[in-house]
Simulated assay, not measured.
Amino acid sequence: MLCWPTCRRRRNWPVPLDEPAWWYARAPHPLASLLSPIARLYGHVAVARLKRGRPFRCPIPVLCVGNFTAGGTGKTPLAIALCDQLAAAGESVVALTRGYGGTHKGPYWVDPANDRAREVGDEALLLAAHARTVVARDRQAGARAITEGPHAATVIVMDDGLQNPALEKDLTIAVVDGSRGFGNGAVIPAGPLRAPLAFQLELADLIVVNEPVGSDGAIAEGLRRSFTGPVLRASVVPRGDTEWLKGQPVIAWAGIGNPERFFRLLESLGADVRAQRVFKDHHPLGTAEAAELLALADTEKALLVTTEKDLVRLKGGRGDLLALAETSRALGIALQFLGTDGERLAELVGSALHGRRAAP
């Protein structure tokens, strides 16, 4: 659940994080009009919260990866790519994440060998496979914990936090879905935007449009007319060998922000997708759901295929959950930049680090 920015400990007005299909429908939906007064209030409070924030200036650079909308756009794959790129350049990187779906409020250093998604969240475990990772609901407290040790750090990569005013960022990257864009352009709950778009654009230093391979780049071109900073283009591509998918009967299942992108990728790689099963983003599967998937795969004589994010949530399961983990195969993905945009990103990151370190 995503709480209103005005919520307090004793007063919680939740907004469902699940994306209504009409947020991205071409035709206007009556509910959007009905909810527009609430959306205006939500947007007003979100903007006011960001404007009155007094961010903490961390002793080391902070690079933030976020998005303008609720739901999946590809933030975590970009954060992972940044961690890998920085580590290859000799930086001591620590990822900072809220740990959505986990019980740890933090600050807490993730132990990838022993922690479970129910404790630290699925995205934290994905990040921890590439860099030391700290989970903290309070990002300022998380940044302080990183700088205090026990592990040396020269740069923080914050996964999701564009609308979080607790930390001063040295570079803020917004990821945009290149297929769906901003939907109907309305603010939660009337649409997918976390705050009015014009205001959010001012929070970003650069934008990465995560678009399908072969896209005409229409959303990126549109953003270049309204955003003064760099707009880069990238696509999610499979990581590693994919020959095993060609002609393979598959039961595809996913509980991510945009499962259709995953299903389309499987089909493009030649998989014979017999059935698709969609769960809520970050959804911890129950025994009955696991048993259903196993039975369906057995009936169809098909291979169960899922995402790395979904598979990591099964870690530590028993019975049918363990069987599902052992029989499901994850399709690894990576973010591939178009043309020289990858080099451009590296230049921008390097410039941000140099500028911060050269400042008095």
Rank of each mutant, 00 (worst) to 15 (best):
G102K: 00
Y100I: 09
Q248L: 15
V236I: 15
R224E: 14
G181M: 00
R318M: 10
L266C: 11
A290C: 08
G72L: 11
P55C: 15
G121L: 06
A295R: 09
C58F: 09
L35M: 14
V208D: 04
V65Q: 00
V157N: 01
V93R: 08
V94F: 15
G342P: 00
G102I: 01
D298A: 11
G149K: 07
A195W: 05
H29V: 03
A39F: 14
R318H: 12
A25G: 12
C3S: 06
A297K: 00
G255W: 01
R224N: 12
R277Q: 13
E308W: 08
H44V: 15
C64L: 10
L126H: 04
G101D: 07
F182V: 04
D138L: 12
P61F: 12
S226Y: 04
E260W: 04
K315R: 13
E267L: 15
W244I: 03
P259C: 03
R194W: 10
A359I: 14
T154F: 15
D272Q: 10
L193N: 07
Q85A: 15
A174V: 07
A291V: 04
L17D: 09
N210Q: 11
L193P: 05
L2M: 02
R194C: 05
E267F: 14
P16Q: 10
R239V: 08
G71D: 01
G53V: 12
S226I: 11
V278D: 03
A88G: 08
L304D: 00
D170C: 02
L311A: 10
A323S: 07
A290P: 00
G316L: 08
R274A: 05
I146T: 01
H104F: 15
R313K: 14
A234C: 11
T307F: 13
T154C: 14
A271L: 14
L324M: 05
A325Y: 07
P284S: 09
G99R: 02
A323Q: 06
I80K: 05
V187R: 10
L41C: 13
G332E: 14
G185Y: 05
G257Q: 02
A325S: 08
L338V: 14
A129D: 07
C64N: 09
R137A: 12
A220W: 00
R11Y: 12
P189Y: 04
N258W: 11
S92T: 10
T327C: 13
L171K: 00
A302N: 02
V134T: 01
L50H: 04
R139G: 10
L311G: 02
E292M: 13
P259N: 01
L35S: 11
A359H: 13
V349P: 06
R313F: 15
R224M: 10
T76R: 03
S268C: 15
R26E: 14
A128I: 11
A325F: 06
P249K: 06
G185W: 03
A295T: 11
L126K: 08
T76G: 05
A87T: 09
L50D: 02
D298T: 09
R180C: 04
N164P: 03
E91S: 05
T133M: 01
V305L: 15
V273N: 07
A141I: 05
G191L: 05
I38W: 08
A145L: 10
R224K: 10
R52L: 12
